[in-house]
Amino acid sequence: MKTRILGIEGTAWNLSAAVVDEDDVISEVTETYQPDTGGIHPREASQHHAKYASTVIQKLLENIKSKGIDPKTLDAVAFSQGPGLGPCLRTVATASRMLSLTLDIPIIGVNHCIAHIEVGKWKTPAKDPVVLYVSGANSQVLAYRKGKYRVFGETLDVGIGNALDKFARSAGLNHPGGPRIEKHAKNFEKYVPLPYVVKGMDFSFSGLTTAAKDALENETMEDVCYSFQETAFAMMVEVTERALAHTGKNEVLLAGGVGANMRLREMLDIMCNDRGASFYVPEKRFMGDNGAMIAYLGLLMYRSGSITGLKDSHVDPNFRPDSVEVTWI
């Protein structure tokens, strides 16, 4: 018998629910929050999730019924317990508890960062990689060692995605800023020096963002977009390389929505080539926030006996990946 887990993601902009088994995604339904102006407003995003939660789940359950799966035979419901925006997390946790009670199946709270890693390992040949996880709020270099995913380096202030978005807004570009910056960067003429900040194994983007904003007064949009990418991405690739050297591992996995950026991929690819390491990127649907990754980590936890239970299903907006005991490796 295959294990079937329903997972719900909703830490920030994307509400997404999926059912997976050991082999693949059986069905996934997604409703994305798109702000009218500016960036993600936590309250509005949570209201969006609350508005669409029941439709998304109903549609998902209908989809699996049409594939001959009775929702009552699902093994567990998994949800993003954190890290993320508090109001969004609470909305999704409430929906998941309801589902757990209605279907009378166990509830599993999963760490959002680790879900990104595990879905990448599931959908690429990576076995034991150093992971560069880059999204709006998170930018971390992680690797598995002795029972936990250790954070080898991370941002000291904002995540790379938020840094890109902040700069994009000040440059008059719409949300999400990353793809627009990438497009402008292609037409650059020269590099504009911006602060390159690596401290030990950590990096910082807030000074870079301010400097890039200021640079727009005298330099072209294309040159500043290009210079922002080159500087910020090189910082993260450098720390990823150090983590490879330190751990002795020979695989790199890219995870998170900013991983869609082709220049970041190219830089990681060059670094891995020069070191003789393998570089893996999952297909795009598994890179940004998605329900399948939550369901899949739920599946790994369920099979290794890590059940959260209703009593401990409170959300944690600062849930650290290195606080999770890995029971499935």
Binding site: V237, L268, I270
Partner: peptide, 28 residues
């Protein structure tokens, strides 16, 4: 030969040279 530099010894002198990283643009 670390991630960042190569270290050579010539008699009683150490020469430490930071190696080029191709993933970074040359000027940076």
């Amino acid at each position: 030969q670390g991630a960042e530099a190569i270290v050579k010894q010539e008699e009683d002198i150490i020469i430490k040279e930071r190696i080029q990283k191709r993933y970074r643009i040359k000027v940076l």
